[in-house]
C-alpha cells in the first residue's frame, strides 16, 4: 500500500514545464536504468569504448529530453565502468543519426512515427526503450511497469527478434510482456 501510494505521488508530481507530463522521478530512474540495460545485454560484447544512446522525443518535449540527458550525465559523470556514455537527442525525421547507438529511448512519439523507429531499431540491432509503458505492447522493447512497484517491463519477443539477449538477473526482476494471443 505504501509503495502504491509512492508511485501515485510520483505520477502526480509531474513536470508542469513540459508539454507532456513527465515525472522527474521516473526520468531519474530511466536515466539510471537505460545505460545499464545496454550493459546487461549481449550488446555489451559489441561495444568499443562507449555506450551510445539516442533520445527521441516530440519537439515539444525536447526540454524533458535534455533533462533526461542531464540526469544521465549526473548519474554517470565519468561513464559507467570502463565505458563512456554518449547521449544525443534526435527527432524522428533524422533517426539515421542514431545508427551507431545501442539504445533508442522513446521519450514521446507520434503514433505515425512508431513503426519507423521500430523498423530502424530492428534493422540496426538497437534496443528500444520508452517512457510510456504502453508502447511495449506496440513494439518497443523495454519500459518501466508501474504497478504496486516499479519494475522493468520487457518484451522478450521483440528483443529476441533482434538476436539480443538480456542478463538472467535482469529478467528475474522484470515484468515480461506477453501478447494476448500468446
Amino acid at each position: 500500500m505504501k509503495k502504491f501510494l509512492a508511485a501515485a505521488v510520483f505520477s502526480c508530481f509531474s513536470l508542469s514545464l513540459f508539454a507532456n507530463s513527465f515525472s522527474e522521478e521516473m526520468l531519474n530512474i530511466y536515466a539510471k536504468l537505460s545505460v545499464r540495460f545496454v550493459l546487461m545485454s549481449t550488446l555489451k560484447d559489441e561495444l568499443s569504448e562507449s555506450v551510445n544512446i539516442c533520445i527521441g522525443s516530440k519537439a515539444e518535449d525536447e526540454r524533458a529530453a535534455t533533462t533526461l540527458i542531464d540526469l544521465m550525465h549526473e548519474h554517470y559523470p565519468a561513464g559507467i565502468g570502463e565505458y563512456k556514455i554518449y547521449v544525443i537527442k534526435s527527432d524522428y525525421s533524422n533517426i539515421n543519426f542514431c545508427k551507431e547507438a545501442s539504445l533508442f529511448f522513446v521519450l514521446s512519439i507520434e503514433d505515425i512515427d512508431l513503426p519507423k523507429v521500430i523498423t530502424f531499431a530492428q534493422e540496426n540491432k538497437i534496443l528500444t526503450m520508452s517512457y510510456d509503458q504502453v508502447l511495449v505492447e506496440d513494439g518497443i522493447d523495454i519500459s518501466l511497469f508501474i504497478g504496486r512497484e516499479i519494475r522493468p517491463y520487457i518484451s522478450l519477443a521483440n528483443i529476441f527478434a533482434k538476436d539480443i539477449y538480456l542478463d538472467n538477473v535482469l529478467l528475474r526482476v522484470s515484468k515480461i510482456y506477453k501478447k494476448q494471443e500468446e
Partner: peptide
Amino acid sequence: IPVISLNLSLGLESANDEY
C-alpha cells in the same frame, strides 16, 4: 544479492521491498 544489487543499481529500491 544479484537481485538486490540490480534493483539498487537501477534505482528501483521499492522493488527490493517487495522482493
